[in-house]
Simulated assay, not measured.
Amino acid sequence: MVTIPLKLRIEFAKYFFVIGGIMRDFSINAITKNTLHSNAFGIGIGGGLQYLHRNKFGIFIYPQANIHELFDRGIIETNISFGLAFRIPRG
């Protein structure tokens, strides 16, 4: 399965954000047979913390849950994402 997410992130307060949106799921079997049809859509939501040092470099962490419907079965995926961030200054 290959998933293409389309998510929106909304920041509030100084360090908090929520993120959510839809996903499109494609079957790997369909890709290898050049039929590329979509099996299903999914949704995802999460929320977390981000700290930016001098409003440039930072770190983030957020738990998220994604719900996929694939082959007429629901799949719930939960994980915690974390990493480094860089804010591009507005010109």
Results as ranks from 00 to 15, higher is better:
Ile28Glu: 11
Ile76Cys: 03
Asn79Gln: 13
Ile67Asp: 07
Phe71Met: 12
Asn29Gln: 15
Ile75Thr: 10
Tyr62Asp: 05
Gly58Met: 08
Asn34Ser: 14
Asn39Tyr: 00
Gly58Arg: 06
Asp25Met: 00
Thr3Cys: 07
Asp72Thr: 04
Phe26Thr: 02
Asp72Tyr: 06
Gln64Thr: 04
Gln64His: 13
Ile22Asn: 07
His68Thr: 03
Lys7Ala: 10
Thr35Leu: 13
Val2His: 06
Met23Leu: 14
Phe71Trp: 12
Ile28Trp: 09
Pro63Glu: 01
Arg54Lys: 11
Gly47Trp: 08
Pro5Cys: 05
Pro5Lys: 02
Thr3Lys: 09
Ile4Arg: 02
His37Tyr: 13
Phe26Ser: 03
Gly58Pro: 03
Lys14Asn: 08
Asn79His: 14
Ala13Leu: 11
Arg54Pro: 06
Met23Cys: 10
Phe71Val: 05
His53Arg: 15
Asp72Glu: 14
Ile67Asn: 08
Ile43Phe: 15
Met1Ser: 04
Thr78Gly: 15
Thr32Ser: 13
Tyr15His: 15
Leu49Gly: 07
Gly44Arg: 00
Arg73Ala: 06
Ile45Cys: 07
Ile76Ser: 06
Pro89Asp: 12
Leu70Gln: 07
Gly42Asp: 00
Asn55Arg: 12
Met1Phe: 05
Tyr51Phe: 14
Leu49Thr: 07
Gly91Asn: 14
Gly83Cys: 04
Ile45Tyr: 11
Phe57Gln: 10
Pro5Ala: 03
Val18Cys: 14
Val18Gly: 05
Gly74Phe: 14
Phe82Asp: 06
Phe57Ser: 15
Phe57Asp: 11
Ala13Val: 02
Phe60Asp: 03
Ile4Gln: 06
Asn29Gly: 12
Gln64Ile: 10
Lys7Met: 13
Arg54Thr: 15
Pro89Val: 09
Ser38Ala: 13
Gly83Lys: 04
His68Asp: 06
His68Arg: 07
Tyr51Gln: 09
